[in-house]
Design a protein around this nucleic acid. Sequence first.
DNA 1: CCAACTTTGTGCAAGCGTTCACAAGCGGTA
DNA 2: TACCGCTTGTGAACGCTTGCACAAAGTTGG
Lengths: 255, 255
Amino acid sequence: MADRRGEGDGVVTTPKTTADTPADVRERARAIPEAAVARLAVYLRVLSGMAEQGVTTISSEELAGAAGVNSAKLRKDLSYVGSYGTRGVGYDVEVLVSHIERILGLTRKHSVAVVGIGNLGHALANYGGFPSRGFPVAALFDIDPDLTGVPVGGIPVDHIDDITSVCSAREVSIGVIATPPQAAQAVCDRLVSAGVQCILNFAPVVLQVPDYVEVRKVDLAVEMQILSFHVARRADEAAGDVVNGVGVDGVVIRP
Amino acid sequence: MADRRGEGDGVVTTPKTTADTPADVRERARAIPEAAVARLAVYLRVLSGMAEQGVTTISSEELAGAAGVNSAKLRKDLSYVGSYGTRGVGYDVEVLVSHIERILGLTRKHSVAVVGIGNLGHALANYGGFPSRGFPVAALFDIDPDLTGVPVGGIPVDHIDDITSVCSAREVSIGVIATPPQAAQAVCDRLVSAGVQCILNFAPVVLQVPDYVEVRKVDLAVEMQILSFHVARRADEAAGDVVNGVGVDGVVIRP
DNA sequence: CCAACTTTGTGCAAGCGTTCACAAGCGGTA
DNA sequence: TACCGCTTGTGAACGCTTGCACAAAGTTGG
């Protein structure tokens, strides 16, 4: 499926028309909006699925439908990657996949370290989606000495005191924090001092990091509360449309 | 969106001072940008922590620092909630907490159902952050008959065939999908037919739902790929700063 | 009571991202 | 080769979000 790392270099499909020097790619990558990057990752997954099903060509309309966006946005997003479509026809699935992978930096392996082997840490260590997409889990850490040496998902757990040395040695480029909130900042600091520049944080805290470190946050409580907000808004609207809040507001809304 | 029915007639009087009728809250909630809602949830957590530490008053500058945003944005966000600060002083922590909770709909309990009791599902079922924040886990589901009846995190697992009846009976308002991608859409359809209008989706697929259903997606692979993009961009920039062109995949990481 | 100081709340302008609309380009056909 | 229909790629308009800067409002000290 998405195992085309390694390729891309020698291969260089980028043929005829567009010159596409590394400098171009660099310049282009710099300008891609964050939101578009997130969507590119989604397109990539959809395209991988298409490729598996034997689809070789796809139009922006089809791909947009499958990815849940409108086709204009999709084309604009793809235009950040380059012009690899054929007018009147659509996009070659394989070509598109390889170019998106290149832009997303998936031609290179990114070793991952997971810190905090609790419920979530276990789930992450065993999550098949990481290695199969070019993100091998190279190290696991926990503060509990009883866990040290115990293999989880095939990888032995190290003690968090060894984060710096182990991460440096194994060239970890992405750190995943799945610790309790109290420990998160300390763990983060160690990861940073080990040279890790990208962090995925599951702990419900705002991490303080140097400018050159990129942090992405996955906050379950926040997600739930956003949903809660929508539940409430919806309930309010319904209440406002039909009945209305008792006597407090005598406002009548007519549908 | 496109839910402006009802209004347009002589609705809502937008009173002078701070009367704050339910209609006002309704009107205000409707207007809060999605991005601001997400931040409000973060402010809420920070404020809760402050309250626990005995802090009673906080300025926008302090709170902004703790939440990792700039103070102007914070004040604008809070202004969506209402004007509950005291000029020259700051905000009363407790007051702010209660108003944000009200806006986010946290005064009401939202029962949660988790579908797919694999690694992630287990972690979610045992995650203490849910119940403690007003999101009691009321039901668990899996397709595996061997799991049915087995309690996980104190709640017995039901079979996914019973999603509709159980969710209706227990008034589940938020569904969490932690199944493999192939099963996600079917599970989603069942949740929707059970009346669930908010879904948190961990499966790496784009769910198709009716307009009135709100879906939030947590996609680990996408998060990793976004980080990968930044690693690559950084590497490219570093390479571009020093050498120009040449190497296809210049690595070079700089501190 | 006044003056000096602090901090909120917000109008406004700049910046991004999304959407629209259409010219340009390509394959197929006669 | 010339024409036709289809789909891409993108300039331009639009709308949402952010950040600035400052008046309004409150506190404190004399």
